[in-house]
Write a protein that binds this DNA or RNA. Structure first.
Lengths: 153, 153
DNA sequence: TCACTGAGGTTGATGCATCAACTATAATGG
DNA sequence: CCATTATAGTTGATGCATCAACCTCAGTGA
């Protein structure tokens, strides 16, 4: 037990895992059914749509989302194929890429946001007391604090 | 705001999402580095290893894990290729399959469990107060209650 | 008994996530 | 100024997750 988990702790962890799996499945399925977007699409579109000009450096995007660069690159390729974004050359840094959200992408982002926030409200906010919502925020922040500043590996 | 999220709620949700992403990345990377197993491998092996005889019907397995059947099938194919499990015919129901964990699989399961539980303790249990651990359990159960009994779609 | 319905599993296609290897350009320091 | 090093991004391979289509066998009722 020095390293392992007590029965109580194991139960908490098990509940958390199941909740997490079910919640993610539910949210992503609802989003996809309503808009055809994945959560990855959604995050990229929301970031772009809420930027001035509807453009961002790929670098900015991946720092904001905290994604690996190859993940973003693959994601953008798929989104470009579907006409949600376009890649443009970057004038300031010729290694860089500027991502621009298209009109269709921007429209979808707005629509998706409504669906998504409604789903979060239904499945999370309204399923908890105000104190629990607060506590979830605190817990998340506490865990994040512990996780940040561990080196990559 | 009727359907959307208040600023506070959005902040909680954002923290949760980031925590979740970072925590999963961390746990699965540590597990993989230490044992070569994914979390999916881990869940299957733990279920099998803690069964009498080291065997389970595929059906049992996927009900316990709450996986889709094709997910389990693909997963087992990959695990069988690596010698972690074998599929056997099922005598009682000739449609069915019995999954047996191999010696190597069983050994790995034990080793992985130690690593995994230690990581959960470090990154979750010890990063929270006892009350927060308790609260996380309650929150997860509350959300689960709301999510269960929504039909498939 | 036998056609039908449904359950247990597999397969193929596709999208998502990571890793490792690579290209090209920028920055840096001698 | 040039060689080195670091950064921005892409690519290919592989594993994971889901969907839809399919096959086989079990159970059911007419």
């Amino acid at each position: 037990m020095r390293d392992g988990l007590s029965e109580k702790e194991a139960t908490v962890w098990e509940s958390y895992r199941r909740m997490r799996a079910l919640l993610e499945a539910r949210l992503s399925r609802e989003l996809h059914r309503a808009t055809g977007l994945s959560e990855a699409d959604y995050e990229v579109l929301i970031a772009l749509a809420s930027s001035r000009e509807g453009t961002m450096r790929a670098l900015e995007l991946r720092c904001g989302l905290q994604w690996e660069k190859s993940r973003l690159s693959h994601q953008l390729r798929r989104m470009e194929r579907r006409g949600l974004v376009v890649r443009e050359e970057c004038a300031e840094d010729r290694r860089g890429t500027v991502i621009r959200v298209t009109g269709a992408g921007c429209r979808l982002a707005g629509e998706a946001r409504r669906h998504y926030e409604r789903a979060v409200r239904r499945h999370v906010i309204e399923a908890l007391s105000a104190e629990q919502v607060e506590a979830l925020g605190e817990i998340s922040r506490a865990l994040l604090a512990g996780l940040r500043g561990l080196r990559r590996p």
